[in-house]
């Protein structure tokens, strides 16, 4: 029977729907790192992260900020000569971190994505004022008030809606989500 998967295989399993991802074919050319707009803020640039996953360096991969900083711009994916979907690998490591709860409590990313999904499930689209609060409290007092002031001005000018709006045919949209994700019957 199947042998216990390595970390590299676990990440590959998280990409199963795309029939795995050929990230083991990485030739370490560095095109991804060179093209990545966020690389300078990352603990490890994308090239190194792919190399570390292939080397089964589980703790080091999970500990670095690289996959949380990835902005999903897909530049790396488009340019990789080995056809590796690096952006999807970043998502796979995010899933790993969330599902195994390896991230630290202060980290904004997981709460942000949860809030995002809930808002979308609820309204059919996102609503920035709710999303913003997930990271607002991470700021210092001064930045906090600057952000709030800015947001208030934008609301007064009608650039941000005061109340979340809902899409048309929201029930149908929610039915569609329920087909995809297992959630309970309506009570």
């Amino acid at each position: 029977m199947a042998t216990k998967p390595t970390f590299r295989q676990e990440i590959s399993n998280l990409l199963y729907a795309s029939h795995g991802d050929p990230f083991s074919n990485c030739i370490q050319c560095g095109t991804c790192s060179g093209t990545c707009p966020v690389a300078e803020f990352m603990d490890e640039p994308p090239r190194r992260l792919i190399g570390m996953i292939n080397a089964n360096m589980k703790e080091e991969v999970l500990d670095c900020n690289t996959y949380w900083f990835c902005a999903s711009c897909y530049h790396c994916t488009v340019r990789c000569p080995s056809n590796i979907d690096i952006a999807s690998v970043m998502y796979a490591v995010k899933r790993y971190s969330i599902w195994h709860k390896t991230y630290s409590d202060e980290l904004v990313g997981p709460v942000f994505s949860e809030t995002f999904m809930k808002t979308v499930a609820h309204n059919g689209k996102s609503y920035e004022p709710i999303l913003a609060t997930t990271y607002l409290f991470g700021f210092g007092a001064k930045e906090f008030f600057q952000e709030v002031q800015g947001a208030t001005r934008m609301m007064l000018k009608g650039r941000i809606p005061v109340l979340p709006s809902k899409i048309k045919h929201l029930k149908n949209f929610q039915k569609m989500i329920k087909r995809i994700v297992p959630i309970g019957e309506e009570t």
Binding site: A121, Q174, G184, E185, T187
Partner: peptide
């Protein structure tokens, strides 16, 4: 992420 509030999660 997906749970609609107030609904059971036992499909």
């Amino acid at each position: 992420a997906f749970l609609f509030p107030g609904q059971p999660a036992h499909p």
